[in-house]
Design a protein around this nucleic acid. Sequence first.
DNA 1: TTCCCCATTTGATCTAGATCAAGGCGGAAG
DNA 2: CTTCCGCCTTGATCTAGATCAAATGGGGAA
Lengths: 268, 268
Amino acid sequence: MRSIADVPGPMRFEALLNMRKPSSICAGCPSLQKGLCGALDDTELSRLGSVSWHRRFRAGDAIHVEGEVPPSFCAIVAGVVKMLKSLPNGSQQIVGLFAAGDFLGRPFGGEARATAIAASEVVICWFPRATVESLAASSGEVKDWLYQHVSDELEKAQEWIMLLGRMTAEQKMAAFLLSVMRATAEGKAATGSARDTAIELPLSRTEIADYLGLTIETISRQIARLRERNVISAGNTRSVVVHRPDVLTAIVDSKQAASHVSFARMDA
Amino acid sequence: MRSIADVPGPMRFEALLNMRKPSSICAGCPSLQKGLCGALDDTELSRLGSVSWHRRFRAGDAIHVEGEVPPSFCAIVAGVVKMLKSLPNGSQQIVGLFAAGDFLGRPFGGEARATAIAASEVVICWFPRATVESLAASSGEVKDWLYQHVSDELEKAQEWIMLLGRMTAEQKMAAFLLSVMRATAEGKAATGSARDTAIELPLSRTEIADYLGLTIETISRQIARLRERNVISAGNTRSVVVHRPDVLTAIVDSKQAASHVSFARMDA
DNA sequence: TTCCCCATTTGATCTAGATCAAGGCGGAAG
DNA sequence: CTTCCGCCTTGATCTAGATCAAATGGGGAA
């Protein structure tokens, strides 16, 4: 666990100067829009802000470890974090993926049931456990937010269970690409049938494999196959252009999409 | 959806007679021990009790359906309920399993993201959506309970993701038997190395398959294999005696437990 | 610019588990 | 008691994806 460069907290004295407005650093933070911080009133935000701390991790760094009680929670400011569990025999499975704005850790949850690892360069905003828990204990809004948040995570987990239990490698790959597309698109126009969407894969082949419950070779072959079929094209290994999101959707929706057919002339 | 025999509510008039004590029917209810009802004070319990309703379902009945906004939530009084999602091509995956005392449905959650089906004869205690949500809105304890509850479910879901993504059929089967054992044992003595524990399988072969992401034939063969190895023995198809829980644990923990070895003389 | 280190791709097999196909078996109805 | 019908078991085969084994290629260090 080689954590790096602990940057001083974002709003140490600003909080003292102005208790009504979030600091300028918080202003741009994704956690203020869709994260925990958005559920706080100005006073609470100042209180949390005054004890929070920005911290940077490099890809591969552990943020917290399975079995340990994390001393802090955090909001992801930038980057992607993977939660993983490992089997005694060494194989790993990614059980969750988090991006900017997401909240990491489960207040009142005791020891972590999975290890959190930075999947890329990551910046997080670090909150002491006690502060978050006391905010949660006193604020109905915070409780509501936490409930909603865990609820959403559960929903995603159940989707994933479906995917892992019943999809073929091809379907898993297609579903993964679509989910990255959606996550990337966020607020953009109709994702529906937009052509030629460039996306940046947040994970290495190995990580995709750990996510989809497959092997790295299978991932590679599935990508090759989609490329041959002109559904996607790939520049460097981390970036992909999706030409036919509709075909990806079709693959997910139908068991055994005729894999030998060229999709060049299919038009929805 | 053929729901049956709607039994009149448990405490209709009792609530009027005595607002301080839960009705005698609630007294024996598992939901009062570990469920939502345990998080209520007497007034709240009376309020909820006065609008609740016992209802009986037969195996196979739908309790609520994916995509619909459930008009009610419920506590399971007896029996087992499976939550399942289906793929467009017809294959199904069980994404959750609930037993007596568990709470079904996600307040404030909008439409259900999975279908709930009775896996056995089931009795539930039915609560109007509005009542539960208003209780949750006003009571911090209820919020806490909901959060904790969803949190636990998420944890289970993540365990399942691990299992589906990275375990062999043999490991899945062993893990399933152990989880049924644990669920059955509940408050009993050291589950550790108790010999010859009889358990009742709450699911048919087909359902186990849908749970483990396998086929019914594979389930059958895995059970046969465990029987041949004297790890378990089976009477009728729904009941199993586990002779060697330690071996089941060993199977889960090690990739490729030497499958050809007789475990008769192992004594870990 | 070259070299080296790794991640990725690609190829050749192998195998766990799916799929296809018969039987048993137990329990409810007659 | 017999028949029928759903589940379950068992057997034979097939295949998606794992595993084993080389290439290939791209990016950073010197």
